[in-house]
């Protein structure tokens, strides 16, 4: 196994062992799924104007959003945060590997393992209780697969960037939390992004956050037609490249000026 595959595999095995957390996660995610759905249903019952999303698309958007919830980088990589605070991060620098690639691999496991553990119940609820079917066309299905994959890499790149930012200050969690708040709101975790006012749509479109969740979900429902999807996926990939480059530069600088105190 290459070092990076080994990191993914070790982290994966570790994350899979937290069964209680997975169970608790399934319960909370189901609860919030119903809550979000009820709020949106009430909203559609009260509005008479045509909206940016069809009511029929809502269950798929909500339940697949709940299924992919853990893929969205709304939390820190707590292990790296703890390592940076304790100074154990020093051992990461003693390995003959590319540190960025190694952290990216950790992020990859962090953003996939919980999804694998928790997605199935959400998809079942969507299919059995709300009759959510497959995407409207084969084109949409292919575009959805491409978009989810891009979203995963985008999420990993952002996770690593947040981790790297913590190298710069002893408790860099403040800055990190701000970024994560933006992720929370502008990835579509709270309300679907098409419902934001018109004047915000340009901002939303040019931020990387919609590519984390909103874009794949809207491709799945057909709200973004298959024909337009390639442009959205290209933007996801573009942002991934930008964030990877930023993360690499910041990591290089962060490591150069890092001070491991004491010990």
């Amino acid at each position: 196994m290459t070092p990076y595959a080994a990191v993914v595999s070790a982290r994966f095995r570790m994350l899979l062992q937290y069964r209680a957390a997975a169970l608790a996660g399934i319960v909370t995610q189901t609860f919030f799924g119903f809550t979000r759905l009820m709020i949106l249903t009430a909203f559609f019952a009260a509005t008479t104007r045509p909206q940016a999303m069809a009511p029929a698309d809502i269950p798929a958007y909500v339940w697949f959003g709940q299924a992919l919830f853990q893929m969205v980088p709304w939390t820190l990589d707590r292990e790296i945060a703890a390592q940076i605070r304790s100074g154990d991060v020093i051992y990461e620098l003693l390995r003959p590997v590319d540190l960025y690639a190694s952290w990216f691999s950790r992020a990859f496991a962090l953003r996939t393992a919980p999804v694998l553990l928790r997605a199935l119940p959400m998809v079942l609820i969507a299919a059995l209780a709300f009759g959510v079917g497959p995407p409207p066309s084969v084109g949409s299905a292919v575009a959805f697969a491409a978009s989810v994959t891009s979203a995963l890499f985008l999420s990993c790149a952002l996770t690593v960037l947040v981790s790297v930012s913590m190298l710069r200050t002893v408790s860099g969690e403040g800055a990190a939390q701000t970024l994560l708040l933006l992720v929370w709101v502008f990835s579509g975790l709270v309300i679907p992004l098409p419902f934001f006012p018109e004047w915000m749509q340009t901002f939303i479109r040019w931020c990387p956050f919609s590519g984390l969740l909103d874009v794949p979900l809207r491709i799945y429902t057909g709200n973004i037609p298959a024909a337009d999807a390639s442009w959205f996926v290209a933007r996801q990939l573009g942002w991934t490249v930008v964030l990877v480059v930023l993360g690499r530069v910041a990591l290089k600088r962060g490591v150069r000026r890092m001070v491991v105190l004491g010990g």
């Binding site: 196994m1 290459t2 070092p3 080994a6 070790a10 095995r13 100074g87 154990d88 390995r95 003959p96």
Partner: peptide, 20 residues
């Protein structure tokens, strides 16, 4: 400090280091 993964058995940390 420790270079071992806290939540994994030591043997698995060793195997990870083998690959690293």
């Amino acid at each position: 400090r420790t270079q071992l993964w806290w939540d994994l058995p030591a043997g698995e940390s060793f195997e990870l280091l083998r690959d690293v």
